[in-house]
Simulated scan of single mutants.
Amino acid sequence: MSESVLVTALIVGLLGGVHCLGMCGGVVGALTFGLKADIQRSRFRMLKFQLAYNLGRILSYALIGAFFGFLGSGLMTLDGLLPIQVSLQMLAGLLMVALGLYLGGWWNGIVVIERFGQSLWEKLKPKVQKYSMVENYTQAWIYGFLWGWLPCGLVYSMLIMAMSSGGLLDGALIMLFFGLGTLPNLLLMGVFAFYFTRLARAVWVRRIAGLTVALFGLWELYSALALRVN
């Protein structure tokens, strides 16, 4: 796996953070304002709790990425590496284009994909609510780990990329870098909740992020087609 794939995952996570702020803003806000008053008064203590949430979330991404990478490696040994790798890479590119269109407010088709994860989330929801009143870092970490399973088209598109990597470790690394890319937005959202909620709803922010993610998707499609030709 080339370093450019990890860089792509990192940048998509950073730009897709606009989607994270919109979709997870309620979760982050609830976590922020659900903390004890003395914690809320200290930006430093609140930041440490937000780090615990997000480290748990990123770990869940890495574990899911490892699983999908393992699945991809199994598929590639069945029918040969190249055809399946190209197909998965093209699918990842198409999903990223669809996500970019969604972020920019031009097309909402990606929402249909998110519905596939609703059944799993409904099973996890009672466990997540159990940890909603966070009092220590361990509870925050567990909450974040469960939060990582929230249905999300952005995550699903990156999981296809992890599957196309064809390896357990590569899949985990792709999702790890993607999760690290989402970290700045959600950390800032947690500490400065009101300001970043307004920023995420700004049309120009969403359109710039959407256009950039869509371009990354087109690049993935081009790379897959070039791989097929060669």
Rank of each mutant, 00 (worst) to 15 (best):
G144R: 04
G167A: 11
F145H: 02
L21E: 00
V155S: 12
L78M: 13
Y222K: 10
H19F: 01
L169T: 15
V5E: 07
L180R: 06
L95N: 09
L81A: 15
Y222P: 04
E114Y: 10
L81P: 12
F216S: 04
L101R: 02
C152R: 03
G65Y: 15
A66E: 12
F68Q: 09
F192G: 05
W106F: 02
G69E: 08
G153P: 10
L94F: 08
L63C: 14
F216G: 01
M158F: 12
L101T: 02
M1N: 06
L31V: 05
M90Y: 03
W107H: 03
W141Y: 15
C20D: 03
L150W: 14
T32D: 05
W149D: 04
F145C: 04
L75E: 08
A202W: 03
L180A: 04
L188R: 01
E114C: 06
Y61T: 08
A92N: 13
E220A: 00
L95E: 06
V7N: 13
L187D: 04
M163D: 11
L75M: 12
Q129R: 15
S157G: 04
Q40M: 11
G104M: 05
Y53G: 03
A224T: 02
A209F: 06
L95Y: 09
P184Y: 07
W141H: 09
Q118A: 15
C24E: 02
Y53F: 10
N185C: 06
Y131I: 07
T182K: 08
F216M: 02
F196L: 03
R41V: 14
G69A: 08
V203R: 03
L99A: 09
I58P: 12
Y137T: 01
G13M: 08
A224R: 00
V134S: 03
L218G: 00
G167M: 11
L14F: 15
T212S: 13
F49A: 06
V28H: 13
R201A: 01
A30E: 13
G105D: 01
L71G: 10
I39A: 13
W107K: 08
S4R: 00
M161W: 01
Y137S: 12
S4A: 01
F196V: 02
G72S: 11
F44L: 15
L169W: 14
A52D: 10
I174R: 05
L103H: 04
L146I: 13
R198F: 02
L225H: 00
V27R: 03
L81W: 11
G56K: 12
A226Y: 14
S165H: 13
R115E: 15
L31W: 06
L168D: 09
A62Q: 05
I64H: 13
S2C: 00
Y102Q: 05
L225G: 04
T138L: 14
K123Q: 11
K127G: 07
I11M: 07
I174T: 12
L55K: 06
L124D: 08
A193R: 11
L14G: 00
S73F: 09
V5A: 04
G26V: 01
L91E: 11
S42F: 11
V191F: 14
W107D: 03
G179Y: 07
L168A: 09
A172N: 10
F196Q: 01
C24L: 06
